[in-house]
Design a protein around this nucleic acid. Sequence first.
DNA 1: AACGCAGCTTGACCAAAGTCAAATTTCGCG
DNA 2: CGCGAAATTTGACTTTGGTCAAGCTGCGTT
Lengths: 232, 232
Amino acid sequence: MRTEDLEEVRQLPLFSGMDPTRVDELLRGAFLQRFPAHVELARECEPADFLHVIVDGQVELYAAHHGRETTVSVIGPGQSFIVAAVLLDRVYLKSARAMVPSRVLLVPADAVRQGFAEDAALARSLAHELAFAYRNLVKELKNQKLRSNLERLANWLLVRDCETGATGRFELPFDKKTLAARLGMAPEVLSRSFAALAPYRVAVNGAEILLDDIPALRKLANPCATIDDASV
Amino acid sequence: MRTEDLEEVRQLPLFSGMDPTRVDELLRGAFLQRFPAHVELARECEPADFLHVIVDGQVELYAAHHGRETTVSVIGPGQSFIVAAVLLDRVYLKSARAMVPSRVLLVPADAVRQGFAEDAALARSLAHELAFAYRNLVKELKNQKLRSNLERLANWLLVRDCETGATGRFELPFDKKTLAARLGMAPEVLSRSFAALAPYRVAVNGAEILLDDIPALRKLANPCATIDDASV
DNA sequence: AACGCAGCTTGACCAAAGTCAAATTTCGCG
DNA sequence: CGCGAAATTTGACTTTGGTCAAGCTGCGTT
């Protein structure tokens, strides 16, 4: 790994609190790789060879079965994935693909397991990471099981608006097909759901979204801290 | 806590590897409580005051929103719950109720967090526990999003049959209303789904289930290791 | 044996969401 | 500027699953 990359990678929150020599030890077998958009980084059912940590970019975790496919989560810089599979030395339960060109740190699984066993700070970081991932997944399951497609879309719009500064106007960060998968619906249904939101003054123009009556939209969406708030 | 209970509690896998004096320290503020069936042990949105460890019995984790309710998981002896909320000092995302009379160890949250920070073995146990819980949740999400009601029921029957000795005959462990909630469908739909399985030689007589053509049922269910196998 | 209740099943109906095909729009590229 | 592929929308239809109400059944009680 190049020295400046190494510098950057050492700063990852995952390694904070660890003995620096141990970090270097862990990173000795690791490498930083660039992936173009749409490339698959890990495939369901394969043994967990590497812990993946996103340095740059965005990665979609998804699973397929029986011809159907569903997005489980979308994660960004600083987050790691397949932590659980690496720790337990099991196969991946999900596949992963880069949504945009991404740089990912790959740490060999056995080094991670050894680090976990020997370095308490790393064990705590991993536990922390797992706790976050777990809670996000619980939220996702609730979002999925307790809401209709339309409610999911409405809430997604509200959350997105907040994340981008609560201006009531923003751009979709990816194309609608992907958004539909993310929300767990067919693209046609997304299209119709947008149409169904017109009475709530949601205007769609290509990738541009305008929310002109947020109170009405909130009333429909019925947002809930234990599903939608990232900080809860 | 009574001495013999203390003895039993010390053996929990969660504490294995920990310094015994530290275990006792952790348990000083803890107590073992009996709960009758159907009692609520924790409620969504409340701050996480205790780590719960099931010593005996069975607990259902569920969430409600907007009048709807859904079971997230059902867990048994040796397993802990709300680990993530305790570690991160957040509110519960799910409620919990005893399905049968249960004994549960309650460990004050701040003691757990302190133990996590100071005792590496506990940190690893908690990480381990979280990793398992995370993977189970991923499986549950896939089960939910990638399968129809009928497929979920068929797979549940197959798994249950394996767990009870693969004899092709077993009893439902709880009533059908609960099973329906567990599978994420209305009780009426469960009833119809059972009827729809008759051509696959699934016979239902009260709580007794007979599977007379397992190959046919498997073909319909299309079981998948990364959803159904507890050991994957 | 009659009663009453809870759990379960059934029928009729409705609403949500998926599917398929065709029309339309968008957009990169020559 | 115009072509063609891909994305998106729309229409028509099907399937799945939920809802409501009525009936059935097993079972413990009186």
